[in-house]
Design a protein around this nucleic acid. Structure first.
Lengths: 135, 135
DNA sequence: CTATCTGCAAATAATTTGCATGTAC
DNA sequence: GTACATGCAAATTATTTGCAGATAG
C-alpha cells in the first residue's frame, strides 16, 4: 500500500503528528479537526496505517495504552510513565547491541520496539505526597 | 488486587499458561475450556489481569497482535514473526545494558518490554518460493 | 459465615470496512 | 477521465463490567 496521492488530509495529519508528542490516533483526530473539521476519524486511522506501512511513522504499542504514533523513525527506545502517560524518547545506550542479539534466534529483524515502564521524574517526585498507588 | 483464593479456574489457567507458548487470552480460553468447559471467557480475562498485576505473569504487547501472556517473568526480549506469529524468547544479550540507559531520562523503571519484529527462520526460508508479501 | 470469585449477558471502545461520492494527477 | 482517497455509518472484536448466585477458607 503506497502513498499515492498528496491530499490535504495527509498533509494536515502528518503536520499534526510531527508537532504532537507520541499521540494516539484519537488525539491526532482532535488536533487535526481544529484545522479542518471535515476530516473523519476513519481517514485518520486509514492514513496513519498507510504511513506506518510506508515507514514514514512508527507505531508504538505501549502497555496499557492505545496505539501511539511516532514521527521519529530512527531506532530508539521509549520510557513510558504509568501514572501520567508521558512518553520520553531515549536515544543511544545499549539497545543497538540488543538488536544484534536477535540473530541468535535466526530471525531477520525489520523493526524493534523497546519500552521501559515506570514513573517519570515528576510523578516520582509526586509520590510520597499523594496516593501512591503504584509503589 | 491480590490473589486471594485458590480456585480451580486459577489453577487450570495457570497450568495452561505454563504449557502454552505466549498465548493470547482467547487461545488460553480455548485450551482451558478443554479441561473445564464451564469456565467463562470473562474469568480468563479477569484472572489473567490479576496474575499480571501480581507479577505472576507478564503481559506482552506485540505489534499487530492481541495481548499475549508469558509465564516467564525474568527479563528477556522477544522475537516476533510477522508472518506466522511465532514468538521466540531471547535471553541474554545487551538489553540489560539498555535498561540501564533509561536512567538518563530520570525514570524509575519497573518493567521493560523489548520486541524484535521480523521473519522467523522457517518463514525466512519460505520466502522466495511463495508469495513474499513482506520483503 | 462472608468476602471473594464466577458465569452470564450486556456494555465499552478502538479500529476496520463497505459503499457512494469526491478529487488529485 | 479514472484510479485512488474520503466521509459516513455500520460492523467487528478485544476487553470490561454489573449483578446475582456459588464457593473457599
Amino acid at each position: 500500500m503506497e502513498n499515492k496521492r498528496n491530499t490535504e488530509q495527509k498533509r494536515i495529519i502528518l503536520g499534526a503528528l510531527a508537532a504532537a508528542d507520541h499521540p494516539t490516533a484519537s488525539e491526532l483526530y482532535e488536533s487535526v479537526r481544529l484545522k479542518n473539521p471535515r476530516i473523519s476519524r476513519a481517514t485518520v486511522f486509514r492514513v496513519l496505517g498507510q504511513f506506518a506501512d510506508d515507514g514514514v511513522v512508527r507505531r508504538l504499542n505501549l502497555l496499557g495504552s492505545d496505539t501511539r504514533f511516532d514521527a521519529r523513525t530512527a531506532p530508539h527506545a521509549h520510557c513510558h510513565c504509568i501514572r501520567c502517560g508521558r512518553v520520553t524518547d531515549v536515544f543511544g545506550g545499549g539497545f543497538e547491541e540488543a538488536l544484534a542479539v536477535s540473530h541468535i534466534a535466526g530471525y531477520k529483524v525489520f523493526s524493534s520496539e523497546i519500552e521501559f515502564s515506570g514513573l517519570c521524574p515528576d510523578c516520582l517526585a509526586a509520590e510520597g505526597e499523594g496516593d501512591n498507588r503504584y509503589i
